[in-house]
Amino acid sequence: MIQQGTSVGRLELGPVGIALDVLPGDEHLAQAAELEHLGYRAIWLPGGQIDDLSQISKIIYATTTVQVGAAILSVDRYRPETVAAFYGEMQGAAPDRLVVGLGGPQQPKPLQVMAEYLTSLDTSDPPVPAARRMLAALGPRKLGLARDRCAGAIPLLVTPEYTASARQILGWEGDLVIDQMVVLDTTASRARETARGPLRFLSTVSGYPANFARMGLSADDISGLSDRLVDALIAWGDMGSIVDRITSHLQAGADQVVVTVLSQDRQPRIMDVARGLAAHLPWWSSSS
Score class of each variant (00 low, 15 high):
L229W: 12
G276S: 06
F212T: 04
L98E: 06
I72E: 12
M239H: 05
R269F: 01
G240C: 08
G207P: 12
I234T: 05
I222F: 05
D220E: 13
A71M: 11
Q267K: 07
L111H: 13
P140T: 10
V83F: 12
P160E: 02
V205F: 02
G103V: 04
I154G: 08
D96S: 10
D179P: 03
R147L: 05
P126W: 07
D52W: 12
A164G: 08
D125L: 15
M215N: 07
T186N: 11
G17I: 02
L157V: 07
V259N: 00
G104N: 04
A191R: 10
A30W: 04
P160S: 04
Q106R: 01
W172D: 14
G144Q: 13
I222Q: 04
Y162R: 05
R192Y: 03
D265L: 15
Q256A: 08
G174F: 09
M114F: 09
T260F: 02
T65S: 12
I154A: 06
A136E: 05
E12C: 12
E12R: 15
R269W: 01
L138K: 02
Q256L: 12
L23A: 12
S226M: 04
L13D: 10
L138S: 06
P160I: 08
C150E: 11
E12M: 13
L199D: 00
R141T: 14
L45Q: 01
Q251R: 13
I43D: 10
